[in-house]
């Protein structure tokens, strides 16, 4: 971990990055809990990690290939079955462009 000291987690700012609204009560509660948790996980800064490869994948192959061929997949009806709002067989969402 770098030497610079973090100012800690800004819950309201991060909630916006996560595209998730929080109530004032939640922000306040999470702020103190997450300050504590972030303080704890900073422990990994004690490890000497120079030259260590990050493990982005677990114990499996690096790449798995298959032929690029057309196959059956989920039917349109099944894919739409759980849609919260549907219009003409499409997912309906709020207006994106004016």
């Amino acid at each position: 971990m770098s030497e610079e000291k973090h100012n800690g987690i800004d819950v309201a700012y991060v909630a916006n990055l996560a595209r998730m609204s929080l109530t004032e009560y939640e922000i306040e509660k999470f702020q103190s809990q997450l300050d504590q948790i972030v303080g704890y996980v900073e422990k990994i800064g004690e490890l000497d990690l120079d030259g260590v490869e990050p493990s982005s994948r677990m114990r499996s192959l690096n790449n798995v290939y298959r032929k690029d061929e057309l196959r059956d997949s989920l039917s349109h009806d099944k894919a739409m079955a759980n849609a919260p709002e549907e219009l003409n067989g499409l997912f309906k969402v709020p207006k994106i462009v004016e």
Binding site: M1, A15, A18, L22, L34, I37, V38, I44, L47, E53
Partner: peptide
């Protein structure tokens, strides 16, 4: 979600997520 977004966010990624992936290797 908040903690996970934070450890992946710009400026903190290397210190947290990047380090944790290396710690996992060890």
């Amino acid at each position: 979600i908040i903690l996970g977004t934070y450890v992946l966010s710009s400026g903190y990624y290397d210190a947290y997520y990047g380090s944790a992936q290396k710690a996992r290797t060890l």
